[in-house]
Simulated scan of single mutants.
Amino acid sequence: MIRVKLKNKLVLTGAAAMAVLFLGLNANAARMDMVDVSNNNGYMSTAEYTSMRNEFGVKAVTVKISEGSTYKDPYAASNIANVQAAGLYINGYHFARYATKAQAIAEADFAGQTAKAAGLPIGAVLATDVESQEANNQSKATNDRNNAAFMKEIQKFGYRADIYTSGSWANNKMTIKGKTGWIASYPYVVSGKNWYSTNHAWQWSSTAKFRISYGGFDVSQLNSNYYTAGQKSRVKPTNKGAVKANNRKANKHIYKPATSAKWVKESKTYTLKTAVKLRAGVSTSSSAIAILPAGTTVKTDKAIIKGGYRWVRQPRFNGYGYLATGPASNTLEYVKSGATHTYYTVKYGDSWWTIAQRNGLNMTTLASQNGKTIYTTIYPGQRLVVR
């Protein structure tokens, strides 16, 4: 998941207000307000969550509850109990696989029942994590209908609803209105703006490190109190100096100087995994020259990161066509190269993290190049592309 943000109440205006909201009174540092965890992180102890709170300023944890209509995260119950014992706000999320309204309702019922059994308290957020291939294959209108059905149904269990998705999908693949939504977009660039300030939360890194916890974590900055509302917690960090230092350290390798997008040479051949619009310009608002069906071979000569997407240029007999290959993180979401791959066969006990470490990869990159996310369940015997 492939996965938020509280503001200080100060009376400021104009640019000064925007700067304070964005920096959280901690220059050049996005805050580590919320962490999300799942089975990929393994067992997490109360001590680990307490360290996150005291040394890093974490306020809330959102745990994976379920996926699709059958998968229950085996660590959900222990995560919920240990987060609460550490005095942190607790929420949950469901990784959506639905493609129809009926499936969305069925998954909401499954998620709600699973959350109740795992001990997720009434009043917590139970977000729908919408980033699957099933959603990618649907129209914006269909995704909006399905998401609305899921969220309406989940509220019947006493939980508050929200949508988690990527910045490149928000208001393209589905509608994310102001004062709603948990948006993932990283790595980010210092631009002077407050990222997703009108949404509940912004997930800004998937590789954050915590002192006594193993591996990388998704962290978010909260832009509202939605993910902490309705729950009682007066526990605050015990080491404010460590919180500031650790937040600056977490940002060190994330912030990059703002630069103008530049074309780079890229002579590659891609095969489309799904239908993609070939556009007249490098923008999702540019007119479509054609809709290229799945299976089409596209030869490119240049690539560029622009407008939240990675674009490639296709030479044509009368000029050029442009298509978005995926989010600006350089993951190839819609296309695959024709190169020979090296595969790894999943063994019992493997996780995205262990396989990624074994092959020198970031686990988000590993999952993406296999057309999955780090919250997709993998099984012994599966073959994954590692090169």
Rank of each mutant, 00 (worst) to 15 (best):
N171L: 04
G167E: 06
G215A: 03
P187R: 07
R211V: 14
D218K: 06
Y226D: 10
R211H: 14
Q203E: 06
A229P: 03
G215P: 04
V235K: 11
Q221R: 02
S205R: 02
V219W: 03
H200W: 13
A201W: 01
D218T: 05
A208R: 01
Y227C: 11
I163Y: 04
G216K: 13
A208V: 03
K209E: 07
G167P: 01
V190N: 14
H200E: 11
K209F: 01
V189D: 06
A170W: 08
S197K: 10
A201I: 06
V219D: 08
F217K: 08
A208L: 00
K236I: 10
S224N: 03
G230R: 04
V190S: 13
I212N: 15
I183S: 01
A201N: 02
T198F: 08
K209V: 09
S205Y: 00
S191T: 13
P237R: 08
N194R: 02
W182Y: 13
A184T: 08
S166D: 11
W169K: 10
S185I: 09
I212M: 05
P237S: 11
P187G: 02
Y164D: 07
S191W: 09
S197R: 09
S205Q: 00
T207A: 13
K173V: 02
Q203C: 07
T228G: 02
G216N: 14
F210L: 02
W169A: 08
D218V: 07
N199S: 12
S197M: 11
N171H: 00
S185L: 12
A201K: 00
K193M: 13
G181R: 01
M174D: 07
Q203D: 10
K236F: 04
K209H: 12
N194M: 10
T198G: 04
N223C: 00
S168H: 12
Y188R: 12
S206A: 15
K232V: 15
G178C: 06
S205W: 00
S168L: 01
S220C: 09
K193A: 12
T228H: 00
G181I: 02
P187A: 09
K173S: 14
K209N: 07
W169H: 08
S166E: 11
F210S: 00
L222G: 14
Q203N: 10
K193R: 13
A229L: 11
T198K: 09
V190M: 15
A208D: 00
K177V: 12
W204I: 03
R234M: 12
V189N: 06
N172G: 05
V219Q: 03
M174H: 08
T228P: 04
S220E: 08
T207R: 06
V235C: 05
Y164V: 14
A184V: 05
Y196K: 03
I183D: 05
